[in-house]
Amino acid sequence: MSDIEKIDHHPRRSRLGNPGPLGLFSFASTTLVLSLYNVHARHIAVPNVVVGMALFCGGLAQFLAGMWEFATGNTFGATAFTSYGAFWLSFATLLIPNSGVASAYANAKPGMEDDAIGIFLISWMIVTFLFFLGSLRKSLGLTALFFFLTLTFMVLAIGNMMKKTDIVKGGGYLGIVTALIAYYCGLSEMLTSDDLFTIPLGKYPPRRTD
């Protein structure tokens, strides 16, 4: 018992809610919008409308969800949400004209910017694969989410480095699947026994210790 609790005799209790649905829905929505642009839905080829989503939904909201996950003691969720919040903030920076990132390649060798983005995506593919390994004892839903997200980053990286629009579109379709899985996981986390219904996340059986 802390010195404060000894004096107060009424220790404060945390009533922090589950930040998981916020992080998952924020990630899913931003991923879905960008992925639809990557597959050229409605003939959209310029993705800059996603900047607002990436800054405030996928970025800020997800980053905050990560901080709240730390408060609940969920290291895996905290690390994942904070990491992808930072990813979306950094991705938005690439698309903001005044950031100077895109303009730095104006006089560079053709294709250098695509290669740089490819390396950027490869680094996130590695991070996501590590989360995939960490999810193998969490739930089937999270395992599927990080599996498809790893594939999404891989295919998008290959498409950018090979300058192949069709491959980037393939990454976009994988991103749509990833977003739908994230929506499902978020809904499963949000619904409780007090709601009209619940949906399973696919818990793994307890590990045997004998």
Rank of each mutant, 00 (worst) to 15 (best):
R13Q: 10
R13S: 11
S14K: 06
S14F: 00
L16S: 07
L16A: 05
N18V: 03
G20K: 00
P21G: 03
L22M: 07
L22I: 01
G23Y: 05
L24A: 12
L24M: 15
F25N: 06
F25K: 07
S26R: 05
S26W: 04
S26A: 13
A28I: 03
A28S: 08
A28E: 07
S29T: 12
S29N: 08
T30E: 10
T30R: 08
T30V: 05
T31K: 04
T31V: 03
L32E: 00
L32I: 02
V33E: 01
L34C: 02
S35M: 05
S35C: 02
Y37F: 14
N38M: 06
V39K: 02
V39Q: 04
H40L: 02
H40N: 14
A41R: 07
A41M: 11
A41D: 08
R42S: 11
H43M: 14
A45H: 13
A45P: 05
V46H: 13
V46S: 12
P47E: 12
V49I: 14
V49R: 05
V49W: 09
V50Q: 15
V51F: 12
M53F: 14
A54L: 14
L55F: 13
F56C: 11
C57L: 15
G59H: 07
L60I: 14
Q62L: 05
Q62H: 03
F63R: 03
L64S: 08
A65C: 01
A65I: 04
G66I: 00
G66N: 10
E69Q: 09
F70G: 06
F70I: 03
F70H: 01
T72N: 15
T72W: 04
T72M: 09
G73K: 02
G73L: 00
N74S: 06
T75W: 02
G77Q: 01
G77Y: 01
T79F: 02
T79C: 14
A80V: 14
A80H: 06
A80R: 04
S83M: 10
S83F: 09
Y84L: 07
L89Y: 14
S90R: 15
L94F: 15
L94N: 12
L95G: 10
L95T: 09
L95F: 11
I96W: 11
I96M: 14
G100L: 09
G100R: 09
G100F: 08
V101H: 07
S103E: 11
A104C: 00
Y105V: 02
A108E: 11
G111K: 04
M112V: 12
E113W: 04
D114N: 12
D114T: 03
D114H: 08
A116G: 15
A116H: 11
I117S: 09
G118Q: 04
G118S: 09
I119F: 13
F120P: 10
L121G: 01
